[in-house]
Design a protein around this nucleic acid. Structure first.
Lengths: 186, 186
DNA sequence: ATTCGGACGGACCGATCGGTCTGTTATCGT
DNA sequence: ACGATAACAGACCGATCGGTCCGTCCGAAT
């Protein structure tokens, strides 16, 4: 009959939101700014994403997918589970420059209300991450996989700290890999 | 002649701002909310603090002072520089429950613009922290104090991660102390 | 008792927030 | 060519943002 809805509009909007949320944080970015950046009508954005919260969740889903890529890359780059954990730390550190850290963790800080869907989504994702790390740790010769997970997460979370990200992420990233190597071989 | 300005009003306002900023983040808290909480007139707040940015800086100064207390406590609680570093990690971990992490680091994430006075203040403070850690590390028998500082900071920053703070800060705090102990005695 | 000035509440400012709705333009299928 | 519909722009909504300003009230010094 008539004009068909373009399937890539949703992606274009999400691209713009992703960039702005990553750079400035969720609360600091208004919907109009996203609309300007995406060069779309306000109607279109609210058709694709019913509310800002929904858009934020979509942004976080993409962030979670990026983490999956990191995880897969680390698994592929090393043979043993120990080396894979170290490689994961290396991948995280290598991904820091030019970013503001981890969108999921940064956004979690902006939504302290544990009942908020955005908060719940992030915690859920991070628990999944912990689960996958645990699976990996359980396949290492360590006597206490939980402890190994705690330590690796401590390092990764430390790398994602705003302080680390902004001041000298280079040194921290290198040191994190060395520390991770010692931890997994202990 | 007339009524004298009460010297504790400034503290009362700062108390309210401190509590709200700590709990919800800077961007999420409006001035009116602080005024309501402090039960003061809007005039008074803007006489004591010329703008929201100034109030935020005052809030961060108090956060910096709290860090100084933590540092002093760690120095007093142990004899050797190695043990003092471990103690510092322990103090940080012990201070986590019931908080949203570190106000300075959380606020840094909210002010990504490196030219903004709030951003600059935080980076300046954190560099001072690094300096004091370096002084401490230099008095340990380690061959590479810089590396030791990087590792301790990685742990502390990891503890202050929103993820650590919200999900299971107990395990992380205990593990951080153990890891710090291994690091300083390596 | 009068008066001076600080504390307070709130009206008010322009701008922006998230969100809704309408009108115009452009592109498609028939 | 025509008509249907998606995409776009923007007016508009109430609420809130940071910030200014004014009027009232009250406490203390004279």
């Amino acid at each position: 009959m008539a004009r068909r809805p373009s399937p890539q509009t949703r992606e274009r909007i999400l691209d713009a939101a992703n960039d702005l949320f990553d750079r400035y944080g969720v609360h600091a970015v208004g919907m109009q700014r996203i609309i300007d950046e995406a060069a779309c009508g306000k109607n279109l954005l609210y058709r694709e994403f019913g509310s800002k919260d929904e858009l934020v969740v979509a942004y976080l889903e993409r962030g979670g997918a990026e983490w999956d890529v990191k995880f897969a890359r680390a698994l592929a780059a090393a043979a043993t589970p120990q080396e894979q954990l170290v490689e994961l730390v290396r991948v995280v550190g290598a991904g820091l420059p030019g970013t503001r850290g981890c969108g999921l963790r940064n956004t979690l800080a902006e939504y302290p209300d544990p009942d908020h869907p955005v908060h719940r989504f992030i915690v859920e994702h991070l628990e999944k991450v912990r689960g996958r790390l645990h699976d990996l740790a359980a396949r290492t010769p360590t006597a206490d996989p939980d402890r190994l997970v705690d330590r690796i997460l401590l390092i990764i979370n430390g790398l994602y700290s705003p302080y680390t990200v902004i001041a000298g992420e280079g040194r921290a990233a290198a040191e994190a890999v060395l520390l991770a190597r010692e931890i997994v071989s202990a």
